[in-house]
Design a protein around this nucleic acid. Structure first.
Length: 840
DNA sequence: GCACCTCGAGTTCC
DNA sequence: CTCGAGGTGC
C-alpha cells in the first residue's frame, strides 16, 4: 500500500471526523472513543498547517473559532422565523384541533409532535451543501449573525451529507423515514432549530467553573443563549452546546417532501440531529397522549423542555390554515405547568405597601424552581394563608406561576413538624406599631399608620419617583430608605430641596460596610467639623453616637471630603434628574401623589377633564363622579386625600418651595360642562333632603349655586322650597365651610371657564380601543401607546370583545392568544409603523 | 342584581 | 402576571 497524498489523507480524515460527529450527535451511537477523535483531529490540523492551500472553511478543525469580532452583524431572515401560539390546558388543545378540523373539513388530522426544547432558536443557511451563515431568531424578521459561534457547535454539520453514504442502521425511532434514495442537495437550504445545553454538560461545566473560580451559568437555557452571544468564538467553543433541527426556511433548487415528518427525516439524512422523540399522532387524543407520555419522561430527559409542539403534518393543510400575525394557525406549543419544588417555610413576614396593605410573604429555604433560586414567595393575604394553612416550619410546594412569580401551592401536611401554630396576622404594624385593621368586606389588612408609618412613607416616595410617575432616575430603593431613615426626606416635597453635599455624605454611609474598610481610610487627626444635620442624621441612623461606625464615618467623611475622593457622579445625576422632574404633566403629578384608587388611567382622565390642579384639589368630591369611570369609591378617595391638610400642604410645598411646574394646565373639558348642569350639580353635592326633584326645582329658580350661598336659606324659602330643606341646605353650607370657601372658587372657575373650551380634536383612531402586547423593536410599548393616543385611540391594558385591534410584537403572550380566540384584528409591528407613517 | 370590562396594586428575580 | 374590586350596562 502506497503512502496517501496529503490531499487524500485530509479528505479521509475529514470524512472520518464528520462521520464520528454524525454518529455521536445525530445517531447517538459513538463509533470511536473521544481520545481517538482528538488524535484524528490533531493529525488533520497538522496536515492543514503544513498544506495551507488545502484548508477549507468547513473543515472540522475550523470549529475551534477565530479571534473575537467587534459586534454581530444583522441578518435578515429570507423567511421570517415564526412564533407559536400557546396552549396550557387540554381544552385549548381540543380547541386548536377543532379550529383546524372545521376549516379543513376533515374528520381526522395527522400531527407531527415533538418536544419543545428550552434553548435558543436559530436559523442555519447552507449554499450548495456548505454551511455559510447562522443567525439567532432575533425579532423573527432580523437576527444576529453568529456564524463563527455556530461553527463551534459540533452537532451542526458544516457540510450536508449527500444521502449516499452509510446511514447507519434504520432508525428504531419514531421519525418516518424518507427512504434511502439519494436526495439532491438544494442550492439554498435554511434549517431552523434549537441550540441547547444538555443538562449533564451544564452541570459539568458549572462544576469546573466553580472549581476554577469562573462564571457559573444560571441555567442551561441562559447558558446556551449566553454562549452564542459571545464575541469571542473561542469561548463558545468551550461551551457544551448541542442542536436539534425542527424545520426549514427558504429552500431553493430542490423540493422538500410535503409533510413535516418527512421533512424531519430528510434533515436527518442530510446530517442534522433531529429529536428521536418526534412522532406522528392522530387527533386531539393522540396529541394529549403524546403530551402525557413526554411529561412523564420530562425529568429523565437529558435536556430541559418546557412543553411540546404540535404541527399539522401535511403541507397542503398548513398552507390552507395560514397565519395569524406571525404565528401559524397550524401549529401550537402545549406548555407544561410551571415546575414545582418542595422547600420549607423559615418565616412568614409581612410587608407594608404604599397603601398600607399588609402582605404576608414566606421566607423560604432557597430552592431552585424552573431555573432560578427562589427564596421569597407571596402569600397574597391572610385568607390565602388560612386556606392553605401555611405555618412557619412547614414543608411546602412552591411553583413559579406563569413561569415568573413564585407562589406557595400547598402544604405537605405529612411533613409538618410537631408544635407548629396556625399563623395569625399580627395586631400591630411591624414597622411603626400602629394597629393593623381590616376594612369591612375587604380581603386586605392595612396598617393604620398612614404617612406616619415609615414603610408607607418610603413606598409613597418610591412611587412618586418611579418611572411612570415623576420619573426621577437614580433614586433607588436603598437611597429612599436611607434618606427617610435619616430624617432628611419626610415627604415628597423634601426631594426638591436635597443638596449635593447631603447626598455625598449619604453615599458614604451606604458604601461603608465593614470596620476595616472604614478604618483604612480614616486619618486620626481629621476631626469632623460642620457636617451639621447630616452627621446628626448618621448618628441617628446608627442609633448610638459611641458606635465605632459613627466615629469612623465622621472622620472618613471629612477626610474624603477634603481630599475630594468622593464619587460625585451619582449625586450630580440625581440632582439633575430631580431638577428635570420639576417640569411635569398634570397627569403624572396626579398619579405620583399616590391617591388610593387613582392609577395612571384615572389620573389621565382627571387631567383631561379638569385640566387644572387647583380645580381638582379644591373640588367638592362628589363632582368627581361626573367623570366617566369614576364612581363613588374613587371620588370618595379623592375627597379623603384632598381633605387632609397635610396633603394640601405637601402640594403647596411641591408647587412653591419645590418649584414644580405643571406643563399642561388647561381649561376644563367642554364635555364636563355639559355634564354639570346646575341641577345635576346640586344632586351630586349630596346635601341632605335635596332630592333629585328638589334639585331640579331649585335649579329652575336660580342661576347658580352662589346665588344661593350668598343669599342664604331665605332665598330658598321664597322660591317655595320647604323650610326643612332650606335649613338642611344652610346647615350643609356651614358644615362644609372651611372647604366651601375654596370650593366656591374652584366651582366658579370650572363653570365659567369650561363652557369656553372646545373639545378633543378628532383623529383617525377616534373611538378605537387598542391593546399593545409583546415587545416592539423600533420603539417601546409606551412610545407606541403615546403615538396611538395622539391619533385618538384609547390604549387599554387587556383584550376583550370591545377591543378594536391588537398590536402584537415579539413574544406576545396570553393577550395575543385571547385576541386570536375572539377573532380580533391583529397588527404586527410593520402594520403599525406603516399606519403611523401614513397618519403623521 | 348580575355579568363583564377595566383598572389598581402587589410581587420575584436578574 | 394575577387577583381583587370598582364601574357600568343590561
Amino acid at each position: 500500500m502506497t503512502e496517501p497524498t496529503p490531499a487524500t489523507r485530509i479528505a479521509e480524515l475529514r470524512r472520518q471526523l464528520e462521520d464520528a460527529n454524525y454518529r455521536y450527535h445525530v445517531l447517538d451511537e459513538p463509533n470511536i472513543p473521544d481520545a481517538e477523535y482528538d488524535r484524528l483531529l490533531r493529525e488533520l490540523d497538522e496536515l492543514e498547517v503544513a498544506h495551507p492551500q488545502l484548508l477549507t472553511a468547513d473543515s472540522p478543525t475550523q470549529r475551534v473559532g477565530n479571534a473575537p469580532s467587534a459586534k454581530f452583524a444583522e441578518v435578515r431572515h429570507a423567511i421570517p422565523m415564526l412564533s407559536l401560539g400557546n396552549a396550557f390546558s387540554d381544552e385549548e388543545v381540543h380547541d386548536f384541533v377543532r379550529r383546524i378540523a372545521d376549516k379543513l373539513k376533515r374528520p381526522t388530522l395527522r400531527f407531527s409532535a415533538e418536544p419543545k426544547l428550552d434553548g435558543l432558536a436559530i436559523s442555519l443557511r447552507y449554499e450548495n451543501g456548505h454551511f455559510v451563515q447562522g443567525a439567532t431568531r432575533g425579532d423573527g424578521a432580523t437576527g444576529e449573525d453568529v456564524t463563527v459561534n455556530l461553527r463551534t457547535v459540533k452537532a451542526i454539520p458544516l457540510r450536508l451529507r449527500s444521502g449516499m453514504g452509510r446511514m447507519g442502521k434504520p432508525e428504531s425511532g419514531m421519525v418516518e423515514n424518507a427512504g434511502e434514495a439519494a436526495s439532491p442537495i438544494p442550492e439554498v437550504l435554511e434549517v431552523r432549530g434549537e441550540v441547547y445545553m444538555p443538562r449533564a454538560d451544564f452541570e459539568k461545566y458549572n462544576e469546573q467553573a466553580r472549581l476554577h473560580g469562573g462564571k457559573v451559568l444560571a441555567n442551561p437555557r441562559n447558558g446556551a443563549a449566553g454562549s452564542l452571544r459571545q464575541l469571542d468564538p473561542r469561548i463558545t467553543a468551550q461551551r457544551p452546546l448541542a442542536f436539534f433541527a425542527y424545520g426549514t426556511g427558504l429552500v431553493e433548487g430542490a423540493v422538500l417532501p410535503d409533510s413535516h415528518s418527512a421533512t424531519l427525516a430528510q434533515l436527518r439524512q442530510w446530517g442534522f440531529p433531529v429529536s428521536s422523540l418526534s412522532e406522528v399522532v392522530e387527533g386531539a387524543e393522540g396529541l394529549l397522549d403524546y403530551y402525557r407520555r413526554i411529561g412523564e419522561r420530562r425529568d429523565a430527559l437529558p435536556f430541559d423542555i418546557d412543553g411540546v409542539v404540535y404541527k399539522l403534518d401535511d403541507g397542503e393543510g398548513q398552507r390552507e390554515m395560514g397565519f395569524v400575525s406571525r404565528a401559524p394557525r397550524w401549529a401550537i406549543a402545549h406548555k407544561f405547568p410551571a415546575q414545582e419544588q418542595a422547600t420549607t417555610v423559615q418565616a412568614i413576614e409581612i410587608q407594608i405597601g404604599r397603601t398600607g396593605a399588609a402582605t404576608p410573604v414566606a421566607r423560604l429555604a432557597p430552592v431552585q424552581v424552573a431555573g432560578v433560586i427562589v427564596t421569597n414567595a407571596t402569600l397574597h393575604n391572610a385568607d390565602q394563608i388560612a386556606r392553605l394553612d401555611v405555618r412557619v416550619g412547614d414543608a411546602v410546594i412552591v411553583r413559579r406561576a406563569g413561569d415568573v412569580i413564585p407562589e406557595v401551592v400547598s402544604v405537605i401536611l405529612e411533613r409538618r413538624p410537631a408544635g407548629t401554630q396556625a399563623w395569625q396576622m399580627p395586631a400591630q404594624c411591624p414597622v411603626c406599631g400602629s394597629e393593623i385593621v381590616r376594612e369591612e368586606g375587604e380581603a386586605a389588612w392595612r396598617c393604620s399608620g398612614e404617612l406616619s408609618c415609615p414603610a408607607q412613607r418610603k413606598e409613597a416616595i418610591r412611587h412618586f419617583a418611579s418611572r411612570r410617575a415623576m420619573d426621577i432616575e437614580g433614586l433607588g430603593d436603598k437611597y429612599v430608605e436611607t434618606l427617610v431613615d435619616a430624617g432628611i426626606v419626610r415627604g415628597v416635597a423634601d426631594l426638591y430641596q436635597l443638596r449635593r453635599d447631603q447626598l455625598l455624605h449619604l453615599k458614604l454611609v451606604l458604601d461603608a460596610d465593614s470596620p476595616e474598610a472604614l478604618a483604612g481610610a480614616v486619618k486620626p487627626h481629621l476631626r469632623p467639623e460642620g457636617s451639621g444635620a447630616v452627621l446628626n442624621a448618621i448618628v441617628r441612623l446608627n442609633g448610638d453616637s459611641d458606635d465605632w461606625r459613627t466615629h469612623a464615618l465622621s472622620q472618613r467623611i471629612d477626610f474624603e471630603w477634603n481630599s475630594k475622593k468622593i464619587a460625585t457622579k451619582w449625586a450630580d445625576n440625581l440632582i439633575a434628574a430631580i431638577d428635570a422632574s420639576r417640569d411635569a404633566t398634570l397627569e403624572r403629578l396626579l398619579f405620583a401623589l399616590g391617591i388610593q384608587h387613582v392609577g395612571e388611567s384615572t389620573a389621565k382622565a382627571l387631567a383631561q377633564w379638569f385640566g387644572d390642579l387647583n380645580l381638582i384639589r379644591h373640588l367638592p368630591w362628589p363632582l368627581f363622579k361626573r367623570v366617566p369611570d369614576i364612581g363613588g369609591e374613587v371620588a370618595r378617595s379623592l375627597g379623603h386625600f384632598f381633605e387632609q391638610p397635610g396633603n394640601q400642604q405637601a402640594i403647596d410645598d411641591l408647587l412653591t418651595v419645590g418649584n414644580v411646574h405643571i406643563r399642561d394646565a388647561h381649561p376644563p373639558s367642554g364635555k364636563l360642562r355639559k355634564e354639570l348642569s346646575f341641577s345635576k350639580l346640586l344632586e351630586d353635592l349630596e346635601i341632605p333632603k335635596v332630592t333629585r326633584a328638589r334639585a331640579e326645582q331649585i335649579a329652575a329658580s336660580f342661576g347658580s349655586i352662589y346665588e344661593l350661598r350668598n343669599g342664604g336659606p331665605d332665598l330658598l324659602v321664597k322660591a317655595e322650597v320647604p323650610e326643612t330643606v332650606a335649613e338642611s341646605f344652610a346647615a350643609w353650607l356651614v358644615e362644609n365651610d372651611p372647604l366651601a370657601t375654596q370650593s366656591q372658587d374652584a366651582l366658579e372657575d370650572l363653570l365659567s371657564r369650561a363652557s369656553k373650551s372646545d373639545d378633543s380634536p378628532s383623529g383617525p383612531l377616534d373611538g378605537k380601543t387598542v391593546v399593545l402586547t409583546g415587545s416592539l423593536s423600533s420603539m417601546s410599548r409606551d412610545e407606541a401607546g403615546e403615538k396611538l393616543e395622539a391619533l385618538g385611540a384609547k390604549v387599554a391594558g387587556s383584550v376583550s370583545k370591545k377591543t378594536s385591534f391588537v398590536v402584537a410584537g415579539e413574544e406576545a403572550g396570553s393577550k395575543l392568544t385571547k385576541a386570536q380566540e375572539l377573532g380580533i384584528e391583529i397588527w404586527d409591528e410593520a402594520q403599525l409603523l406603516d399606519f403611523l407613517a401614513r397618519h403623521e
